[in-house]
Amino acid sequence: MTGKFYATHAALIGIILAISGFITWSAVDARASLDNLVVVAPVAGVIALLAVILVAVTLLKPAPAPAEGEAGEAPSKDPGIWGDMLLLAGFGVFCYALTKVGFDLATFLFVWAGVVMSGGKGWWQPPLYAALFTAALVYGFGSLFPYPMLTLVL
């Protein structure tokens, strides 16, 4: 039996190849001269080669015994993956919302939701903590920023 190519691994290699391919195409398209491709061209070649090696090695490697596979060999079967992805998606939305809805509101909502998603107990502690933390960030961290910072409430 051959090794399994897990979805998260396939996604990672796919992302690496897609981004590398696009950067290489863009660089060649912009100017196909030595000074412009001195790093891009050799690096693209090595990335393609390494990706092929990794895929081949993973597919040809014998599948691990179930007992061995529990410690990280089957990353996409981990039940925590969906929780991680949800928090990651929430983090992405939070980063985008910072300058759209205001640093204070976005931070308050994200920290509150994040505490609850990470296992914070009680119904009043998470929002209270989120409010205090947001105020501390806005008046502490934010005051040190050399840039204007959009806020909705504070």
């Binding site: 939070f94 931070t107 994200f110 920290v111 994040g114 505490v115 990470s118 933390f133 960030l137």
Partner: peptide, 8 residues
């Protein structure tokens, strides 16, 4: 509490 705070 630490994870969402430091992420923010």
């Amino acid at each position: 509490y630490l994870v969402p705070s430091v992420l923010a």
